[in-house]
């Protein structure tokens, strides 16, 4: 067994420097690497390019890094829930690259799988296609999209073991699973870290080979963005 365990977020994020490109898992606030984001705030690393489907809310998730002006550029599919984001974007402080969600996911998976580029129909004929090669496949137009290149991928899982194997829960899997192994160094934070051998190999969602460092998060708030319930 190759041991990937590190003690905490500080050790896991060693080597993160200004101006790096970082992928962060999560959809909205669901499945975000809370402890690593807190550590990035503490480190004060700046000029970051962040690849993440969303940009958090004002006071949680990536919104915490935006507040401290640590992000230079956001690559996302939807950034609607964040007033500070809007302010920085409209004032030109923050560069934003909007990418269709499925394309964003596939650009991560392609990076994970060593595919340099791929064709997708999403965005053909729209401003997303500007400057990109287009080509007809099976009677339909597609555009060429390139895999992401990132320095760090930071993902969050439910359970993990010392070998770096990951298991996700519910819809918190989202981009975490696609980003694991998609950057030079992948850091996984988990709610529960167990010794190797305790997780059933049949149940592993992401094999440990994609993960470089793993740690158990100190605490998880797991904030709900839209609490929607019905009466009993």
């Amino acid at each position: 067994m190759i041991n990937k365990k590190v003690q905490n977020a500080e050790e896991a994020l060693q080597g993160v420097k200004d101006s790096m490109t970082i992928m962060l898992g999560g959809f909205g606030l669901c499945g975000i690497p809370e402890n690593s984001i807190a550590e990035l705030v503490k480190k004060g690393t700046t000029n970051l390019t962040c690849i993440s489907n969303n940009a958090g809310v004002d006071d949680f998730g990536l919104g915490l890094l935006l507040q401290k002006k640590q992000i230079k550029k956001m690559i996302s599919s939807y950034v609607g829930e964040n007033a500070e984001f809007e302010r920085q974007m409209l004032s030109g402080e923050l560069e934003v690259e909007l990418t269709p969600q499925g394309t964003l996911a596939e650009k991560c998976r392609a990076a994970q799988a060593g595919i340099p580029a791929f064709y997708t129909p999403a965005g053909f004929g729209t401003e997303v296609a500007e400057g990109k090669e287009s080509r007809e496949w099976n009677g339909k137009m597609h555009i060429l999209e390139e895999a992401y290149k990132a320095d760090f991928a930071i993902v969050k899982a439910w359970k993990g073991d010392e070998a770096g194997n990951l298991i996700f829960k519910g819809t918190a899997r989202n981009f975490n699973s696609c980003m694991a192994g998609a950057a030079t160094i992948t850091v996984a934070e988990v709610e529960e870290l167990v010794p190797a051998g305790e997780l059933d190999p049949n149940e592993i969602h992401i094999p440990g080979i994609f993960v470089k460092r793993i740690f158990q998060g100190e605490q998880y708030e797991k904030r709900i963005e839209q609490r929607t319930v019905r009466k009993k």
């Binding site: 959809f27 909205g28 606030l29 669901c30 499945g31 829930e81 439910w158 829960k169 519910g170 819809t171 918190a172 899997r173 989202n174 797991k222 904030r223 709900i224 963005e225 839209q226 609490r227 929607t228 319930v229 019905r230 009466k231 009993k232």
Partner: peptide, 26 residues
């Protein structure tokens, strides 16, 4: 966002932060 077979909103007190729809609703 990664679910097939969505049901109704949860009963009060049974919501799970890890199970949401694309509108970020539980």
């Amino acid at each position: 966002n990664g679910v097939l077979g969505m049901g109704p909103f949860p009963f009060e007190g049974e919501e799970d932060a890890d199970i949401i729809n694309a509108g970020k609703q539980t």
